[in-house]
Amino acid sequence: MPETTESPVELVRAIVAAHRGERGVLLPILHDIQNRFGYIDPDLVPALAHELNMSRADVHGVITFYTDFRSEPGGAATVRICRAEACQSVGAEKLVADAEQVFGVKAGQTTPDGSVTLQQVFCLGNCALGPAAQVNGRMYGRVDRGRLIELLANEGDA
């Protein structure tokens, strides 16, 4: 990737400018920032608040309300395992326990080497083919311990 000369704050300004004229733009802007940087650096909040003419507290409040937005970098891969009722009925709790054992972290944490962030999620909309998991945004069905390890290995090759 070519080195960018723009500073993060300039990038934030550009993202805000791209959404000018739209209604209620904070969520789309936060999604764009997270897509660009992988997380929303708290240091960017003052600039964002200034650009949107909002208080820093309001911006912080929105970021912390939604589980998707993170304030520190995640792992290279994000694994989300569904723990909702339909997946529980076919063994999701065991899959979460297996994943915690495989990666050596609890749900909500990132492995020390930064390779994987493990998250729980409530429903991926794959309720007839559970247990369901999402790896880097792609959904998988009928996941068990073996398939999870296989998926991660394949992600590493990709």
Binding site: G24, L27, P28, G61, Y66
Partner: peptide, 27 residues
């Protein structure tokens, strides 16, 4: 017509909470 994407909050399926979220606020 526009598509807006939520951010991982179940409560935003409640209609007034969804409206708050569409306005760019906490749900």
């Amino acid at each position: 017509l526009f598509v807006r994407v939520g951010a991982g909050a179940y409560i935003c399926g409640e209609e007034t909470s969804m409206l708050e979220s569409l306005e760019g606020k906490r749900g």
